[in-house]
């Protein structure tokens, strides 16, 4: 608990209080409490089925939580559409399967939401998109379709697409899990860049190197609960919980 207390000095960017969620009878999130400060970078790990993806998907309302309170930048994530839209404008998300829009070019993928959600003029949206495509180092692919890019490039486009909405928070749901090994690095590099720019990030990943390098906090989840959280050095050197130890023994080799 000491970790979250040190981070509640200012109003937290994200607050989860006693959050519970069920899929039918299956209790997938059990009494989750978590505060994330602005600019904090959190890596969430744990075995599959531990609820880590579900938790971050609750933060932008892709999944509905049934008990407890989630607030993002002061706005409660409630299941009323207006609130949800407000939250989603502040929260960018990157998916395991990229989820780029295959019928739109890279440029159109990036400008669609700024134009229609932020009501930005097309020219400005394109300038913004170019800026972020440059930042993820693929400005030359702007006119191609997602299907013409490699997996790593697609995921970097997905990051640029999310950044074009100028989010305050970025959620990453296993961003490198469906990539070929030689493409993981280019995506992680992009994420490290982003972390250094001061973005608030929640990253579900098994890339422990990334956690060591950029995370302020590492959270270990199992069976829908947060079992352990600590700053990365301590987390990796001195895992406290038996399950954490077992898990780390599996993924660190």
């Amino acid at each position: 608990m000491s970790m979250s207390e040190t981070n509640t000095n200012a109003e937290p960017m994200i607050r989860l209080a006693n959050v519970n969620k069920w899929y039918g009878d299956f209790h997938v999130l059990r009494d989750i409490n978590l505060n994330v400060a602005s600019g904090e970078r959190i890596v969430i790990c744990g075995p599959s089925g531990s609820g880590k993806s579900t938790m971050i998907r609750c933060i932008n309302g892709l999944e509905e939580h049934q008990q407890g309170i989630i607030t993002v930048d002061g706005i409660e994530v409630a299941h009323n559409l207006k609130k949800l839209h407000e939250v989603r404008r502040e929260v960018g998300m990157v998916f395991q399967q990229f989820n780029l829009f295959p019928h739109l070019t890279v440029m159109e993928n990036c400008t669609l939401a700024p134009i229609w959600v932020r009501k930005m003029p097309k020219k400005d949206a394109e300038m913004l998109a170019r800026k972020f495509l440059e930042r993820v180092r693929i400005p030359e692919q702007a006119d191609k379709y997602p299907g013409q890019l490699s997996g790593g490039q697609q995921q970097r486009v997905a990051i640029a697409r999310a950044l074009c909405m100028n989010p305050k928070i970025m959620l990453f749901d296993e961003p490198t899990s469906s990539l070929d090994p030689e493409m993981i690095k280019e995506v992680l590099d992009t994420m490290v860049d982003l972390a250094e720019s001061g973005m608030t990030m929640l990253v579900v990943t098994h890339e422990m190197g990334f956690a060591r390098q950029v995370a302020d906090r590492v959270i270990f989840m199992d069976e829908g609960t947060i079992l352990e959280q600590n700053e990365p050095k301590e987390f990796f050197a001195n895992p406290k919980h038996e399950r954490t130890k077992a898990f780390l023994a599996q993924v660190l080799h």
Binding site: L62, L112, W116
Partner: peptide
């Protein structure tokens, strides 16, 4: 249409109709 397309549209803040008109229906 994969569920991910709906999710990506929602996550970007597109409304139901915007998501349908620009993302889901064309595909």
């Amino acid at each position: 249409i994969p569920k991910g397309q709906y999710e990506a549209a929602s996550a970007l803040g597109l409304s139901y109709w915007q998501g349908m008109i620009f993302i889901v229906l064309p595909q």
